[in-house]
Amino acid sequence: MRISMLFLVFVLLGPSAQAQEAVAVLKTMSGHVWVIRNDARISAAPGMELLEADLLGTDDDGSAGVSFMDGSRVSLGPDSAMEISSFRFAPKDKDYDFQVYFKKGTAVYSSGKIGKLAPETVRFRTPQAVLGIRGTTFLVRVQ
């Protein structure tokens, strides 16, 4: 009975959970790096796929580099946190969106294909400002 209930849970949750596509991959990291997904804190490991709405963070000893599916890259220094607010890269439908919320710490942003094809959709938000780009590498600190 318990097994069949579990099965039911998987059947109900499975498809919606799987329907979410990876939008980025954690490629490089050192120290403690974590992801908050669906209110749960997960320890991050290199190669981990990131989803929309994930909050990626580093501890005092941590740093991390992420590559998005369009080739955009963001790396975080120590004690930093960034939410992937929304990401769409569908050249076939000309549908693009890149929005992150950088809460604290230090970061390097380098634009990818979205920055070339639809720079107006790129919004790098912080508590104080919204940063937009035209084919750019920039550094940000929020303290």
């Binding site: 380098s110 634009s111 920055g115 104080q128 780009i133 920039f138 550094l139 929020v142």
Partner: peptide, 21 residues
């Protein structure tokens, strides 16, 4: 609470722009 933004050259040598709003 402060946001600091620094524009950097791209790795391919070009330089873009950042709008701060």
């Amino acid at each position: 609470p402060t946001t600091t933004v620094v524009l950097m050259p791209d790795e391919d040598g070009g330089v873009g722009r950042v709008t701060v709003n």
